[in-house]
Simulated scan of single mutants.
Amino acid sequence: MRALLPRLLAPLLLSAGVAGAAPLTVEVRFDLRAVLVNREAPSALSLHVAGGAPRPLRLRGPASVTHPESFGLLLPVRLTLPAAPAGEVSLRGPLFVCGLRERVCRRIELNLPVPVTGGVARVTVTDADLAPRRSLWPGR
């Protein structure tokens, strides 16, 4: 009976992550004031963890009153990983955004590191993260 118990529990421990390892809670927040994320475009953010498959994040929130095709607000996303990764954690993917002031829409390839402190990893996506990258060569 004693030899049978570890065999029965092994698949459960493996599916939950490394035995004895603490889970990691990841929080992604959005503090966007000057841009709207297009709801109808194929924006696709994913959490990338060293040694693991990307974990897609579902973007959701209410529509903008003035631009119903866009999110007026993106709600925070929270997910739990079975164990804290040994390497880097990052938030990556394309976001289709429109600037409220300049009235220009563009595709931004987001790639942000997600700092891990203890059992929590937090990152806040801001307008600065979604600002267009300036070229060193004018006209290009």
Rank of each mutant, 00 (worst) to 15 (best):
L4A: 15
R107N: 05
F71A: 11
V28E: 04
V26Y: 01
A86Q: 01
N111H: 09
L36M: 14
V104C: 04
R60I: 00
S90W: 08
G99E: 10
T126R: 15
L110G: 06
A22I: 10
M1I: 10
L13G: 05
L14Y: 10
R58F: 00
V37L: 15
I108K: 07
P6T: 08
P138E: 14
P54K: 02
S15Y: 07
P132L: 05
T124Y: 11
L8T: 07
R92E: 12
N38A: 08
P94I: 01
R2M: 12
L136M: 06
P68R: 05
M1R: 07
R60W: 03
P11H: 01
P56R: 02
L79P: 11
L100F: 07
M1T: 08
L74F: 07
L75Q: 14
P132H: 02
V125M: 00
E40F: 02
G51W: 04
L45C: 11
A131M: 03
A63I: 07
V77A: 13
V104P: 03
E88F: 09
A83H: 13
A41G: 06
S46L: 00
G93C: 11
D31R: 09
A16N: 05
P42G: 14
A44L: 08
W137S: 15
L91F: 00
A41N: 06
T126L: 01
S15W: 14
L24T: 01
P85F: 12
R107E: 15
E88I: 03
R92T: 12
L9G: 07
L9S: 08
L45H: 02
R58C: 10
V35Y: 06
V65C: 04
L5H: 03
P132C: 09
N111T: 13
V49Y: 00
L32N: 05
D127Y: 02
R133W: 11
E69M: 03
G52C: 02
R134A: 15
A121G: 06
P138Y: 12
L100R: 08
P82I: 13
L9I: 13
A131E: 15
A63S: 10
V104M: 10
A44W: 02
R107W: 01
G17L: 09
S90Y: 06
E88M: 08
A50E: 15
A34G: 05
P138C: 08
L9Y: 04
P132N: 06
